[in-house]
Nucleic acid binder design. Structure first.
Lengths: 215, 215, 215, 215
DNA sequence: GATGAATGAGATTTCATTCAT
DNA sequence: CATGAATGAAATCTCATTCAT
């Protein structure tokens, strides 16, 4: 009876190995410029074998996007679990970690972006689409709750304001990854990057409570 | 000699027509999912003729990116020419305009992003690479100058701080386009979008001068 | 020695189970569109195990064709064993039964057809090729004998005429399955089908003896 | 203005060349066992070029099926235009011609059969599906009319009977092609084939009027 | 005997780019 | 200058068959 389980486990591991290889390649060469062949070669499997684990390329992308969302969700958990206002230092650390995760797992987001940008260019199969939606909702809810609590626990009616704030902050973080990544070597020195992150933290530190209340 | 000039002018116009058609298609169908043939058809030119104007696909992408950068540069000019602090209302208007431009010309940025993400996937021909660098530098300088002037004209040594602030703001704007676009129909109502933009404006309104000075 | 026999018997049963599953799938989805994996799944065996029973896909096809031929041979036996001219009513019943069998086992014929159409596309292993030939010969002989007997037992020299008649009748029956199946839902109502079958029976009823004699 | 037309004409010719090559290959090797590559090679075009003329493999199949139906429709026209009962000799000639056409163009029918057998295995694009339906309907109407006129012009109410007869005859013809083709080299001598055709003609000669009237 | 993950050979399809007209 | 048919290289995907366990 252990055999079935072991096989099951091995199969899952293989899937993860493939996703990990795909991730690395995407990150290295860019989301385009990576073919199924490349991934197969990277995990030392035949092309056909990949198709045992993912029914097509989009399925693989979707798997990546899910994994990525989870990574970021976890980051959020760690950062916000205290339910109290983060200090400037904690904020800087948080942003830095966000940037670092993005450096490794950002391609997940890129996949996601493409999914939406292309207006159907990548059609996730229903299973994945749902999973993704759920993770996103979960992250959203968590962040909103965090801001709600911090801002004014007695005014739970301010939920829309908290939601809006949440999105602004997400936007800032996401935008930072883009801006910093794009210019990294050409425009920014490592010092520059640090400076930008500090500024951003300062901005975030000043968000609530005023911001959340006069929506 | 008037003839050569006219030809030159016509050639430039054609080029712009082609870019405009490409832009529209990219925006409609997503950056992938658009082929050279599609573009040729859209401008009512033959495929072969496209290659008279752009030496290859990457050249065309590069042309797009330049045009896009110019659009946003112009927006910046309009918004910042007063050299004084924008009111909350003006900020909201500015962000809205930024979003609207992105809705039409965002694919320019996407092209740019890809260029950098792909790490060499699109090798711009030298001419375009220079033009792009120049425009980007110009926009950057302008923004930085704006913040510098507003904040403390007497402290020109604060230039790095101003630069950093500039990037944070750019990041926020860019991030907003991503976040709002991605979730537009699924997560956000039109009301939500308005709310988020207002918050972002509030955030921006509170940036300087403190932020720029204590970097 | 009883053990070997039992094993033999079980092996044969397994083979039939597999063929039955294959038949059902072919009938459902069409001859193409069915993979070895599908069949394995349908009989709840592993892919590898299928290859214990059939040395390759063509072997399996051949097995199917044999089974099908036998089915139709049995039908022939039942219909003709009386050795006297069938009434119009009996003929209608016969055709109807033929059509019904075809509805379930027709894919056998399709396999056969393909085998011959493809001119060597399916190379039957010798065993099957022989079996198939034998069954076909047997059916043929039986039919011919039937017509011979009925028509003019004293003129055994008319054997070629009887053979030709036999083939015409087979052709008619086979053609009916094709025509009626193809148009079933689109062109024919159930009433139409009945009408066509009656006509065909009428045609058959009028075949001999004149037909067989003046060949 | 002649240029556009010439190009148009050449394009159509190319399409026909491709279909002709495909037909020949199908006929030679069987409907399966022919790849897009094979066809490309046969017309001395690159694979990619085929896709300029047919948007995919099914489209090519559909084109074939249409052409084939037209061929047979023409045969029908020639055979039946006299609107009077065919003599035994004419019938034999007709069947022989039918068989000969089938020998060259039968793969069209095979494609058709597959289309229906596979229950969607080959999904014709709407355009072709309609064309096919129309041709089939046209052939049907023509045949029915022929039998109606011949049999009993005064009893136009017998249309269903005529339809049924038509199908029986079609079935016989189609069945003949199958039976004779399958066994051609293995079972039938050329003499046998002639004999079978004569019998079939005899059968057909005896069909109406009795058959059509007592439906 | 039984398994099913892995393979590899080949099929279909796409598309930027070229070049004869 | 303009054309668009033709190309070829490469990408995605399929599946009968094998073989280590």
């Amino acid at each position: 009876m252990g055999i079935t389980e072991r096989k099951e486990r091995e199969k899952k591991q293989r899937k993860e190995q493939i996703l990990e290889a795909a991730r690395r390649l995407f990150q290295e060469r860019g989301f385009l410029n990576v073919t199924i062949s490349d991934i197969a070669e990277a995990v030392e499997l035949s092309i056909g074998s990949l198709y045992l684990y993912f029914k097509n390329k989009e399925d693989l992308y979707a798997g990546l996007a899910c994994l990525g969302s989870q990574k970021f969700d976890t980051l959020l958990d760690e950062a916000l679990y205290k339910k109290k206002k983060l200090t400037q230092k904690e904020l800087v650390a948080f942003i830095e970690k966000f940037m670092r995760i993005y450096a490794d797992y950002g391609c997940y987001f890129d996949v996601l972006m493409f999914n939406f940008k292309g207006k159907g260019s990548i059609n996730l199969s229903d299973g994945y689409a749902n999973t993704l939606r759920e993770i996103t909702q979960s992250s959203l809810t968590k962040s909103v709750k965090y801001f709600l609590t911090r801002v004014s626990p007695e005014r739970q009616d301010k939920i829309e304001a908290a939601r809006a704030t949440t999105f602004v902050i997400w936007a800032l973080l996401l935008g930072l990854t883009q801006v910093l990544n794009v210019g990294r070597t050409e425009i920014f020195s490592e010092e520059d990057v640090q400076r930008v992150i500090k500024k951003a933290a300062l901005l975030l530190a000043n968000v609530p409570p005023e911001l959340s209340i006069n929506s």
